[in-house]
Simulated assay, not measured.
Amino acid sequence: MIRTVRTLFAAVLVLVGLTIPAQAAAGEVYVALGDSAASGPLIPNQVLPQLGCFRSDRNYAHLTAAAIGASTFRDVTCSGADTRDMYQSQNTDLGSMPPQLDALSADTTLVTVQIGANDVGLTGFIEDCLNLLPPPVGDYCYDDYQSGGQDEWRVKTDNLRPVLVQLAADIRARAPQARIFVVGYATYARENGCYPTVPILRRDANYIRSTLVYFNQMLAEQAAAAGVGFIDLQSPSVGHDPCTGPNTRWIEPYVPANPATPFHPNANGMRGFATAVIASVSAAH
């Protein structure tokens, strides 16, 4: 009976586009940390009882845990989380959540962490760039972030560098056996945008794109500095940005067509991200 269930489950994974790696580690103790880009707000089904985190049982962490056959899986990703919520309780509209690092233990063997976007205000940044009317009525969001010859978004990004190195060290201290992976962020804007389908002007779409490239580069550099892995989600998500059709996109636009929060991954995106995560964690084992 157990073999039959496992065979059926493997078939389901293949049908949704995920395969079980040949070198998957048996008995993996996997902990997923992160913000809403990892938790999957509004993607069915949302996990009880911590509804305040808007965590889906179809996010990439759940799909990865199933694909690698993790013996223990703890997903503490939570919408709205920033690096402070790794260490302290996070208040949500539906209750307080424990510090995410509390999910780690000495026997943890795998950790993914996708964090930092809320530290620098990524969601607010993209929303600020929405422009229903072109100039001269509307204006460019790019101008809002230039001050004293500096780009404020890049300054915030650079200020996060030592915080992420310290976070990696603190994860390693609590889970000394674990393989640790920093997970990057997806493509939220294509080159030149697609105004008015997604109401972000061409100049601002390119600004968002270049800013996210810089942010992901920072994450990769700090992961390398901390001696941990980095998983690129920007490259595989090219061609699946909010400008594409409902069946193609991995990130929903301002008005979602699939169950997801605006400018967040949908179920297709989570499957695509899981493919990248599974490949990385399996190759590194």
Rank of each mutant, 00 (worst) to 15 (best):
L48K: 12
L104Y: 06
A25L: 13
C53G: 04
N247C: 07
N192A: 03
N91Q: 15
D170L: 00
Y185N: 03
V113C: 05
H240M: 12
I278G: 01
R74F: 06
T77C: 02
T64R: 06
P162Y: 02
D93G: 10
E127Y: 07
M1Q: 15
D102Q: 10
P98N: 05
I68H: 11
A117Y: 05
F273M: 08
Q46D: 14
Y207T: 14
A11V: 13
H62N: 14
F263E: 01
L63F: 11
M270R: 03
P21G: 03
S105F: 07
A66E: 14
S147A: 13
V31T: 11
V12E: 15
T211I: 12
R179A: 02
P135N: 11
R190E: 02
R190L: 03
S89M: 00
I208F: 04
H264Q: 01
S105V: 09
N159H: 08
R55D: 06
P176D: 04
R6Q: 15
A26Q: 12
L94S: 05
Y207A: 03
C129A: 09
T109M: 14
S280A: 02
R172C: 01
V213K: 07
T109C: 15
A25D: 07
L8Q: 13
G95N: 08
R249S: 02
L33M: 07
V113H: 00
S235T: 08
L212M: 13
Q46E: 15
S235I: 09
P262H: 06
G269T: 01
D232G: 03
S147Q: 14
H62E: 14
G227F: 00
T112H: 08
Q90G: 08
T261W: 03
V182D: 01
G116Q: 04
Q234K: 04
R58W: 10
A205N: 15
G124P: 06
Q23V: 10
G121E: 01
S105I: 11
Q217F: 03
A205T: 13
T261H: 05
I208E: 06
L160E: 09
A81D: 04
L212Q: 01
V163N: 10
P242V: 04
A226N: 01
I43S: 10
L122G: 07
P162W: 02
V111Y: 00
I126W: 01
P242I: 02
N131F: 03
A168C: 08
G80N: 02
G121S: 03
A61K: 10
G227I: 07
T248K: 12
R271K: 13
A279G: 12
H240G: 06
T187K: 02
L167A: 01
L33C: 07
D93W: 12
R209A: 09
K156L: 02
L13S: 11
D139R: 15
T244P: 09
T7P: 02
A267F: 12
T248A: 08
P135T: 05
C129E: 01
L42I: 09
V183L: 08
S237A: 13
P98T: 04
F73M: 01
P98V: 05
P246C: 05
N159G: 10
P49M: 09
A257H: 13
I115A: 05
A103F: 13
V238W: 07
M1D: 15
T112N: 10
A25N: 13
G17E: 10
D57Y: 04
G269A: 03
D102T: 12
P134G: 05
K156F: 02
G69H: 09
D204F: 06
V12Q: 12
Q166L: 08
C78I: 10
V12P: 00
T248R: 08
Y188H: 03
T108F: 13
